[in-house]
């Protein structure tokens, strides 16, 4: 009746919900708050409480799903086939997840020392590894057929992986590009954006033309471009944004200024004072 999977997930769920209660109480709540899901107020730190509770509920939901629907449950399968256990269909080797997971853990550790952003990055990596690894382990022995197992895994994971990968790729480009632009000078940003666009367009034309000789060239250029954007992004993040001048509060009509005119009127501004002003 209660499969191993159920016990595992339900255990995790109960643990997480208990942790949420404790956390909600210890971070400054009262006794009724955490138990009534914050209905009567009195939960201490909301975000942490919310996350823990959410994860707990999700784990319990997975547990119930397992019991009710027995999706590709190896134990059930084994029962059905009258064997003790379904063997994994392929040896569990060649997985990169342990390495990536270790990298994530290391990032977390570094993040604890350095800053929160790095820590969260590590946390995300570890989370992704946990999910992917668990899905792989499960699907490896879901049925007796490797082909079917792979299809199973893809049916569940592809709808998550494809958009996530696409969004992540774009997010990296957007983040890196915007950091570089923020680091450049006002006119520099115009040039950088223009050059980037032209280079991308150029590589696109090269890649799409059917001359086979271009393959290596295109690959090389793409790598250079990728490294330039990524590296530039990281460097620009570390280096910080350029200095911006707060536009002086509006006194009279004035339009179409392009930055350099700002300093000319600086004296009729009042909030300008608390900003370091010098760009030229």
């Amino acid at each position: 009746m209660f499969t191993t999977g159920f016990k595992f997930f339900f255990g995790i769920g109960v643990g997480l919900v208990t942790a949420a209660m404790l956390y909600g109480y210890t971070s400054g709540g009262n006794w009724t708050g955490p138990v009534s899901l914050g209905w009567k107020e009195g939960v201490g730190e909301h975000i942490g409480y919310g996350i823990l509770l959410l994860l707990g509920v999700v784990a319990m939901a997975i547990a119930c799903t397992l019991v009710f629907f027995r999706d590709a449950d190896p134990a059930d399968q084994a029962d059905y086939m009258g064997v003790d256990d379904i063997e994994p269909t392929q040896p569990v080797t060649g997985s990169f997840w342990p390495v990536v997971g270790a990298f994530g853990a290391a990032t977390m550790a570094v993040g604890l020392v350095l800053n929160t952003a790095v820590f969260i990055t590590g946390l995300v990596i570890v989370g992704v590894v946990a999910i992917e690894w668990m899905m792989d382990a499960w699907s490896d022995r879901a049925t007796g057929d490797p082909e079917a197992n792979r299809a199973l895994r893809n049916r569940i994971m592809a709808p998550i992986e494809i958009p996530a990968a696409g969004a992540a790729a774009v997010a990296v480009v957007v983040l890196a590009a915007s950091r570089i632009l923020l680091n450049a000078s006002k006119n520099g940003a115009v040039v950088v954006a223009g050059v980037l666009a032209v280079v991308i367009l150029g590589i696109g034309f090269l890649a799409a033309s059917d001359k086979k000789i271009n393959r290596n060239l295109v690959a090389g250029l793409s790598v250079v471009l990728g490294v330039a954007i990524l590296g530039g992004g990281v460097w620009a993040t570390v280096d910080g944004e350029r200095e911006f001048h707060e536009h002086e509060p509006h006194g009279e009509e004035d339009h179409a200024d392009d930055g350099s005119t700002e300093d000319d009127h600086a004296d009729d501004g009042s909030t300008e004072a608390d900003h370091g002003e010098d760009e030229e």
């Binding site: 790729a169 480009v173 983040l175 590009a177 915007s178």
Partner: peptide, 20 residues
């Protein structure tokens, strides 16, 4: 594929520009 990726990347630059 080349054009799809190029389009997406140009879109990415546009959004990066908007963030900026």
């Amino acid at each position: 594929r080349a054009w799809l990726l190029t389009t997406a990347m140009l879109g990415g630059i546009f959004i990066g520009g908007q963030v900026y």
